[in-house]
Design a protein around this nucleic acid. Structure first.
Lengths: 355, 355
DNA sequence: TCCGCCAATGTAAACGTTTCAAACATTCAT
DNA sequence: ATGAATGTTTGAAACGTTTACATTGGCGGA
């Protein structure tokens, strides 16, 4: 039998000086691991003197608690998952800011993902969040009704709050403004200025139930005013060049004088398209948006929009979710008030000067 | 010895039907827990027949792997942390999109936090990320030089990539454009149009080294052109109303005809301020930005800006970080090319019509 | 002196994974 | 039939916490 090569039987020391653990701190401080845990989690329960020793040891070793160990042990992870369609639209970025603000105040961790407006990616994203054992979720879905994600969450009894979605069922938590009413109001503002030939520029219905609900509000306003034909153009999300989409509406014989856009981002793009056709906003065409993103107030013409309290909605969504997680609240829809901003992008109707 | 009260010695069943674990799947499938693990992680290593049985069991039980268990065991967590100043500025939101895109493609999880431009919150945010045992970090810091976060990361040998920061040290990984040169170029564009009286509108230096670097580029352009006084206004981040900041510059006797802004968001706000003073851009005042956010191309006047490939920078930052994590790459700075957009917000100098 | 009590601390068993070494089963050449 | 070689599967020990329960020691009162 050949002798073993010179490899020693016990490793000399774990080669990489790997991260210090609670055990290391305990050893250093000459206390038990349980005491260290108490110093971290229940500082009041341990005499100041001991705490001091332990804290010194922690500082000396550069100890950081491994959250994964904790999360594994604890039933609650103090983590919430967030799914938004995209961060590119400031309306969602702002709502996330509200969520994070409130989460920070509560010491909660936020796991953020986005679906890129693709309904098929929602399930994957939520799955990933659930694998992280989040305590609850805040979601902005393409379509809140008949959504497999909603069904899953309901079945697994995972607390969740929809944000911006306005689902048909009233027994699921949702924070939004009244989408139809928002569109109704901004449309009426145009009608009040004498416009009769209006079109809605909307995000694709299959990527956004808000878009559909807003279209409904638009239609209702037209109907109430006795206007027949509700023009509609659906635009893919992320599109910023609307020239091709709007050519017929803006340059045709029966050209439209008012564009109601389902989001402010679309409204800004629509104004740009008008301009590229040599049309002035609001002299030739009036444009209204919905959302109330802050940049709308800075551009020329100042965008007239149905403003929702975006950041506050994010905050409330998190606050509400906390209630659900604690079992203190029952799922319910909350409609927050919106208001029309006094923009310049909607003007009085005047017959279009020949182009 | 009194007999035990009626409490049964074994709990009948764990009251809440808690989430199924690998053990449950193993039991159901009649295999060992190790086999289940292999089906999940190395599907190739297990015969199709066994895999099928296990997969069926997983579906039947609605099994989801608990990522926290995995993360605890594994040395790598396949998670990266990201810190940005804010999501409210589309330039960062867009870079995060680039990061997420690349991360998704690699199956990495992204942990996102923001500092609200507050240097004091950077350490806390990074600490939280490190407690999560991220494999590496992508950071946009207020000031990359002499930054305690950088020192910490270097000391603990945690891979990280700075994004948008352009640190003095060349041995730390950073992906950015040449900030000074960007400002230099956009300033020169104004000088080429005949402007001699220029001011920079910059984000507060203490919240942004980019701001300072861009100011340097601005000054250099003025110096090269033999212009003496580089006006400077520092603006707090998040401010959108610049009227008060710009009154003296715009309305004084020695009024300025060009505003170079350290970010596009500031440029948009500056244009708004000009307008509120009855000044036309670009007829009375030229305004240039830096960043190249997409909304800049949609507004009137189209914003002239030094455009950086924001989303691509995010992607590259993640790709680079992966290299660092694998130990395949050495930290180094990468400067990506920028270009001037053909905006309308910069016009030829003409003597200001009397206000 | 002894007892009981309380505060302070310690012990050890989870939590749900991954993974190494070892066991087992099968095939095939001898 | 035997053994080697190969292909599957398993047992059990981590990973770093939290926490129910046990232990210790000190102190006041009898």
């Amino acid at each position: 039998m050949t002798p073993e090569p010179s490899r020693p039987s016990l490793p000399l020391q774990p080669s990489p000086p790997s991260k210090p653990t609670m055990r290391d701190v305990a050893r250093k401080a000459g206390v038990s691991i349980a005491t260290v845990s108490r110093v971290i989690n229940f500082p009041g329960d341990v005499p100041a003197k001991t705490a001091e020793i332990v804290n010194t040891a922690m500082r000396y070793l550069n100890y950081r608690p491994n959250i994964n160990g904790r999360r594994l042990k604890m039933t609650q992870t103090r983590t919430v998952g967030v799914l938004v369609p995209t961060l590119a639209n400031p309306v969602f970025a702002t709502s996330v800011q509200g969520i994070e603000q409130e989460a920070n105040a509560e010491g909660l961790t936020v796991l953020l993902t986005s679906s890129s407006y693709d309904p098929d990616r929602e399930m994957g994203a939520v799955s990933a969040l659930l694998n992280n054992r989040v305590d609850g979720l805040i979601l902005t879905l393409a379509d809140a009704d008949n959504n497999p994600v909603v069904d899953l969450l309901l079945a697994e009894k995972i607390p969740f709050v929809l944000l911006f979605n306005q689902p048909a069922r009233s027994d699921i938590a949702a924070i939004s403004v009244d989408n139809a009413q928002s569109a109704f109001d901004i449309t009426n503002a145009m009608i009040a200025k004498g416009h009769r030939s209006l079109a809605m520029v909307a995000g694709r219905f299959e990527s956004s139930d808000r878009s559909r609900q807003r279209y409904d509000g638009f239609c209702r306003a037209l109907r109430d005013a006795g206007i027949k034909t509700p023009h509609l153009v659906q635009v893919g999300f992320g599109e910023t060049d609307l020239k091709a989409y709007l050519r017929d509406l803006l340059c045709g014989l029966d050209a439209v004088t008012g564009l109601v856009c389902s989001t402010d981002m679309l409204a800004i793009a629509a104004i740009d398209a008008c301009r590229s056709y040599g049309l002035s906003v609001p002299d030739d065409v009036s444009v209204g948006g919905i959302d109330g993103i802050s940049v709308g107030g800075l551009i020329t013409p100042k965008l007239c929009s149905a403003v929702q309290p975006t950041q506050e909605m994010g905050r409330q969504a998190l606050a509400f979710l906390r209630g659900l997680i604690k079992g203190q609240a029952n799922p319910q829809s909350l409609l927050l008030p919106h208001h029309l901003s006094d923009g310049e992008s909607i003007g009085s109707f005047r017959r279009r000067s020949s182009t």
